[in-house]
Design a protein around this nucleic acid. Structure first.
Lengths: 196, 196
DNA sequence: TCTTTGTGTGTGAATATTCACTTACTTAAA
DNA sequence: TTTAAGTAAGTGAATATTCACACACAAAGA
């Protein structure tokens, strides 16, 4: 599963991320990428065959590192509430460090460009859900999360709440502290989810 | 507040919507717009000074008609739960009839293009919240909605859940019945919001 | 009742700019 | 001497916008 990537390719991916943060999808051109890398446009094509490949590499890289982070963050001895909190805090602190990925993942401008990009973005959502679902199920089983609605519905509500938080952060140009706001969101969600 | 719009301008706005549905933001070019209108590209500029103005007119038109719809739909004798349900069913059936507006409102590709477009999209979100907030407050006051979290937090969760629903619908290319899925979502949300 | 003048709405061609990508070349290290 | 990694200078296609011009129609003056 793990895709091998050269050092140079990683540099380009990071440059792409930097551009995304600064000027969004529309700013992500080969020209800007070359400028950021401090070499010519044609040099980009020594490392990637097309722009689409760059975007996909970026997204794959994100999916992979997210998966690893989640796996390492969550300890099996934790309670469902703790796992839930850990998962989100982990994600908030990750995006705080790499705000450009917010633009990448939550941008539908990107999704239009190609079917493959579309699928890769959905894959990232899938990674998150893959880690979240067992937590919700365990919580419901142990009756610390409500069983009044299905786990899928719970998942939907949680994911939607999270995504909107990211959206607001992005619209606000990353000006507020996402960790702090995120903690509030986690608390509110947990309060609501707690079994009645 | 009401912006006056000519018949021709309205036709163009509708053509723009049609294109959005069929081919998304990237398909919304003056060329395609002219083709859809069955006249030349330059003729477009007889009715709008720029492409930006067309998009803004489209969004303003949407905001306006949404506001009217909400105002008419919600009756003061209804219970908070009924109002809540009415509001969302109203919105789902609207988007079912005009799927292209989903692309317009939930597209950040669009938001990047200009600050004014950005603001107009946020304004649409604001219209929704303007009608939703009193319902939530009333529900909390009457203790049919939970008071364990703040009304702002409730609002956030509800809006996020709704937006994700729209996102999924769009990604699925409007293939499933948004009214039916929406009803489930409303029920799940209401169950969760109900006072403990 | 002609004729002039103005206006709204269309056309086709041309504009400058941007885009992703290509080709032919150089350079330097292995 | 082969090869990886860079560059300069292009390509064609697409973009929004502007230009001079044309046609239909209406009001107003002769």
């Amino acid at each position: 599963m793990t895709v091998v990537i050269s050092d140079r390719q990683l540099e380009i991916i990071e440059a792409a991320g930097k551009i995304l943060t600064a000027s969004g999808i529309s700013g992500l051109t080969i020209k800007n990428l070359a400028k950021e890398m401090k070499f010519s446009e044609s040099a980009i094509y020594r490392h990637f065959t097309s722009k689409e490949e760059i975007i996909i590499a970026l997204l794959e890289y994100l999916a992979q590192s997210m998966d690893e982070r989640y796996t390492n963050a969550i300890k099996s001895e934790q309670s469902p509430e703790e796992k839930f909190t850990t998962l989100f805090q982990n994600q908030f602190s990750f995006f705080k460090k790499h705000p450009h990925f917010v633009v990448a993942v939550f941008s539908d401008g990107l999704m239009e460009e190609s079917q493959r990009i579309n699928e890769t973005i959905l894959k990232i959502m899938g990674v998150k859900m893959k880690h979240l679902m067992p937590i919700i199920l365990e919580g419901q089983q142990k009756k610390v999360f409500t069983n009044s609605i299905t786990s899928d519905e719970l998942m939907h509500i949680v994911m939607g709440t999270f995504r909107l938080q990211m959206f607001k952060w992005r619209v606000a140009n990353f000006q507020f502290d996402i960790s702090r706001n995120g903690d509030n969101m986690i608390l509110a969600l947990l309060t609501l989810l707690k079994s009645k």
